[in-house]
Design a protein around this nucleic acid. Structure first.
Lengths: 204, 204
DNA sequence: GTGTTGATATATCGGCTCGATATATCCTAC
DNA sequence: GTAGGATATATCGAGCCGATATATCAACAC
């Protein structure tokens, strides 16, 4: 992960649901995006300070968290952040961001927060992703047509596999688009209707 | 692309075949790895100078290229590089590099130069890649078992798709391994026999 | 001729990410 | 008590990326 906004987006998305400090944020990122998506401390902490500097997140006055219980998390030094109004706006902007790319990483990340988008915005992203994949497919097929004789068996096998994978990706996107257009009443979801109301998490 | 050696590897691999200057190198990289693998100028030129500084490539004395013909490329300013002996060694080391990761990008890049590896080294890489994919698959399935009820429809669909894709990747790797173990007489290759009689360098 | 465009070719800059490393605090087990 | 591990934040250098600048040269138009 390295591109513009691709760290800010999930950070804001998580902070949107509840306030957190850096360490927890990273754990949540890993469980949400899988263990194959690692953020470095050297990226996360400076990024949080940057976001705070720009006013999209703010530090939460750290109440020392009364120590009645043993299990309770103590007043160990930590910096808890909360998203601001500007942060909410930036989050939505990053999520919709039409001029942005729709490569696998961007798309995966955006899909993780799809529930915060309006249906039309979802469709736009899905269609942009499909167009990207179709371009990719065309280029690979063209490559295979032109160079089949000039590349070795490994590269050939790789490109064949790429073609199959890309076709499978397109089929999946088509499935998502179909679902989006014909929202079947009982789709296995668990976090609110895709309807007009934004799920407003109150507190934890 | 961003990880250690993942720029050096293809650069050395291409220069190994013939000497080139930066601009052409980038064009070759794009056609070889597809248009979805872009190297920035801000990466390529400093990297070339670094490689030259470290003695793995060297500048070729630029003969002004006699101008008998019109179509001939003129003596426009350019810096042509050639790989050195140390460079060949580094290339092989980067390619085999067992402690290194075998994520999709690394593996794809290495596969593009598989023909330069000994059969045993190829098998090792293939098996490392397979193990990586199997780990990934197990983790995704575990995730689905544990969190199926707690994630929304989009994340669920994404993870299902990831599982299918990973299974397909594993099947493909298995195919490559099988081919490697039973080299059918007529496999579509174009760069020399898989030579049973390659000098067996006792490497570390 | 001259002007415009586009490909060729190299270079540099700021902002950012990464991996490594340092430094504390707190909890649990022995 | 103290050793080891999880929690929590911070910093540094190396290197990548996107943007931008600067030339040269071929092609074609006017």
């Amino acid at each position: 992960m390295k591109q513009a906004g691709m760290l800010e987006l999930p950070v804001l998305g998580l902070l949107k649901e509840r306030e957190m400090h850096g360490y927890e944020l990273r754990k949540q990122l890993s469980t949400m995006l899988g263990p194959f998506w690692q953020v470095s401390w050297g990226s996360l902490y400076p990024a949080l300070r940057r976001l705070a500097r720009d006013g999209v997140v703010e530090k939460v006055a750290d109440a020392p968290a009364g120590k009645s219980g043993k299990t309770l998390v103590s007043a160990r030094r930590r910096t808890v952040y909360r998203v601001t109004g500007a942060g909410e706006a930036l989050f939505t902007q990053l999520l919709e961001e039409m001029p942005g790319t729709v490569d696998a990483e961007h798309f995966t990340l955006k899909l993780a927060f799809f529930r915060y988008l309006q249906p039309e915005a979802r469709l736009m992203l899905l269609e942009r992703r499909r167009a990207y994949l179709q371009d990719k497919l065309a280029i690979f097929k063209e490559n295979l047509r032109n160079y089949r004789e000039r590349i070795d068996g490994y590269a050939l096998s790789l490109q064949d596999h790429e073609v199959r994978t890309t076709e499978s990706d397109i089929a999946w996107i088509n499935e998502l688009i179909t679902k989006e257009l014909n929202p079947k009443s009982a789709r296995g979801r668990s976090s609110g209707e895709p309807g007009p109301a934004r799920p407003k998490t109150t507190n934890a």
